[in-house]
Amino acid sequence: MFQETQQNIKHKKTERLFRILFLMMVLLLITPVLMILGTLIVKGGPAISLEFLFTNPTNGMTEGGLFPALLGTIWLVVVALLASVPLGIAAALYLSEYAPDNWLTRAINLAIVNLAGVPSIVHALFGVGAFVIFFDFGTSILAASLTLAVMTLPVVIVATRESLQAVPQAFREACWNMGATRWQTIRRVVLPNAISGILTGIILEVSRTAGETAPIMFTGAAFYLPFLPESVFDQTMALALHLFVVATQVPNVPPSMPYGVALVLISIVLLFNAMSITFRMYLRGQKKW
């Protein structure tokens, strides 16, 4: 009896030791990143102003704001979503509602994993080879957005598929038994109950798309443009590329400027990401069945 108690104490001790060890690992991973984010805020904060957000860069990009880049990012994200959301939802619907368990479905799933895993610069090469040259869109918002759409397609597919599969099979069975077609079942019962989850995925995709640099470098985003884009066939500036440019390519930039750009970019990305997470948590709290 006594011995066992002693063993218990020893076990408790090792357990606490491991707990602390693993907690340290988490903290070591997270703390530097938080410190870095803190530095960005401290150094970039002073640069942020309404003027910074809503004016053009001037004096060889060493002064002024980032408005064209901000607007360009919005263009790129919106056009990319227009292409990837319908396609991604269709793909997820196929996988969740139609696909039999066969080799083709496995191949599709593997293709999705690979689409997400191909390096962003290879997506850029694909964008150049396919959209800029072969389809002759030139370096344009259209070519860049399509490249982004291909790259972020898995985000929509995976999120949509998950929320579709969260709808219990019994609901589909009930509808089929009533004589509803597969599509009527999807439209009347499955989609309305998955739509919020899909929306969460789309917001997440906004966050991903806004931060990408490599895929747009050669397909439609420009270092500097004296005019704003008017159609999808124009080139545009973009926030992510703008950060790269002011950080590495432009001489004599005041140090607060790239910090300001980085802060704006990361704020947008994290804001959308946080929105997506919050929305997801809110939905988890909703009980519908």
Binding site: I30, V33, V269, N273
Partner: peptide, 14 residues
């Protein structure tokens, strides 16, 4: 999840 979302160009800048 938020840490995973930080764009690569921001990491480069850091």
């Amino acid at each position: 999840e938020l840490l995973a979302a930080i764009p690569s160009v921001v990491w480069g800048f850091i």
